[in-house]
């Protein structure tokens, strides 16, 4: 097993400018009401391991539970799929994200997210899948990412809704960047990814971790946490359990996030009522910014940052249909 640690100059200010993020969150809260996401929600056990959830905190009216078995964090009751679909398709928040937030941070995303992700996929594909692998991406189309990938691989774009039917072709690699956390039926979404893979094919996932530093420190105050988008934040143990169910194995698990410490420090500055254990408060808000960087790197080394990237390998046999 290998894992990656990233050191760089990415800032919370550049990646998630406060005024844009605040506007986006305001839209999200309005959309939650507009589409009645809370109405008729379904209680559920842990989507990773079916374990029991214990209430952890509320955010925007949603109850986040922590699995007592695997430590994953998940929303329960989970909104109904048709309501969520409307939230994503018609909501002001998603539109603001597409039309404002992403374009205004496009440069920094290209440099710190899309470029590294494309290289990560291509390098793993080259060493594990051989020459000219076929890849498919689930989720929102990201033209700059597709351009980078298509320089060295054949990539098709599949529907934004991972659980949608169709697209029965098999590929060597499935890319699911920032999509599995938003599936109302996580097991079905993961199975859909597995079904698309040849035996020994690779699944590339980026997502948010339920065990990450900022979520654990900030809980309901985690700025990046948007309930209709982040329905399940799996722990590492959660991923192991969920992948085992699909006959897949985890071959790489890293949390190369660069922003947890800055995010927590920002939250402390914005909210004087927020109290961290004093020694953590001193670390995240240390006057020597190298301390913050070193702390962030330590979190990555321990796989405790909130941004996860993982590779799972499908088993040697064709998947069992459900």
């Amino acid at each position: 097993m290998k894992r990656v640690v990233t050191s760089g100059d990415l800032t919370q200010r550049a990646m998630r400018p406060a005024e844009l993020l605040d506007a986006y969150l305001a839209h999200a809260q309005a959309d939650i009401l507009r589409f009645d996401l809370m109405l008729g929600g379904l209680e559920r056990p842990c989507p990773a391991c079916s374990g029991h959830g214990a209430p952890e905190f509320m955010r925007f009216g949603f109850s986040y539970q922590r699995c007592t078995a695997c430590g994953s964090l998940f929303v329960s009751p989970v909104p109904r799929e048709e309501r969520l679909a409307r939230y994503h398709a018609e909501g002001a928040a998603e539109r603001f994200r597409r039309e404002q937030l992403l374009p205004m941070t496009a440069d920094v995303r290209a440099r710190h997210a899309l470029g590294p992700r494309a290289r990560w996929v291509l390098s793993a594909a080259a060493s594990r899948l051989g020459r000219s692998p076929t890849l498919a991406q689930f989720g929102a189309e990201t033209p700059p990412l597709l351009d980078l990938l298509r320089a060295s691989a054949s990539v098709v774009q599949w529907p934004a809704d991972v659980t949608a039917d169709g697209a029965d072709a098999r590929v060597d690699g499935v890319i699911a960047f920032d999509v599995l956390e938003r599936a109302a039926d996580f097991s079905r979404a993961l199975h859909r990814c597995r079904r698309a893979l040849h035996p020994r094919g690779l699944l590339f996932v980026t997502t948010m971790s339920g065990g990450g530093f900022d979520v654990r420190m900030l809980g309901p105050r985690t700025a990046a946490l948007v309930p209709p988008v982040h329905l399940q934040l799996l722990s590492r143990a959660g991923w192991l359990a969920a992948l085992a169910r699909e006959g897949a194995t985890l071959v790489e698990y890293s949390t190369p996030g660069e922003l947890d410490v800055q995010a927590v420090a920002d939250a402390c500055r914005r909210d004087p009522g927020l109290r961290l254990p004093p020694i953590l408060d001193e670390l995240v808000r240390h006057e020597d910014e190298q301390v913050g960087r070193a702390f962030q790197e330590l979190l990555q080394q321990a796989c405790l940052s909130s941004h996860v990237q993982l590779i799972a390998e499908a088993g040697p046999d064709a998947p069992i249909p459900r």
């Binding site: 290998k2 640690v5 050191s7």
Partner: peptide, 8 residues
């Protein structure tokens, strides 16, 4: 910016 891989 650097990426550091750890092999276990």
């Amino acid at each position: 910016r650097e990426e550091r891989y750890y092999f276990d």
